[in-house]
Amino acid sequence: MQILPCPYCGPRSDAEFHYVGDADKPRPSRDCSDEQWVQYLLMRRNARGAARELWVHRSGCGRWLVLVRDTVNHEVQAAEPMNR
């Protein structure tokens, strides 16, 4: 169990949050190739260590956020609003 920070609500239980995917991933245009679409939809950085991740505060305010998190020790360096 871990307390995660929400940029809108402050510190909350991790049970309220849901992981979505890599942060800062630009959505390709509608006429992109199948490869570009798969790159966007399914490919993951899946970083070991420092990662920028997109989460949603699903059972809280319902808003999207970026967690700067270490995937080995689970420490959260920062929580930012999603910039799009």
Partner: peptide
């Protein structure tokens, strides 16, 4: 539930 390389799980 969160992506992890920790090789240990939570309670």
């Amino acid at each position: 539930r969160s992506p992890s390389y920790a090789q240990r799980g939570g309670f």
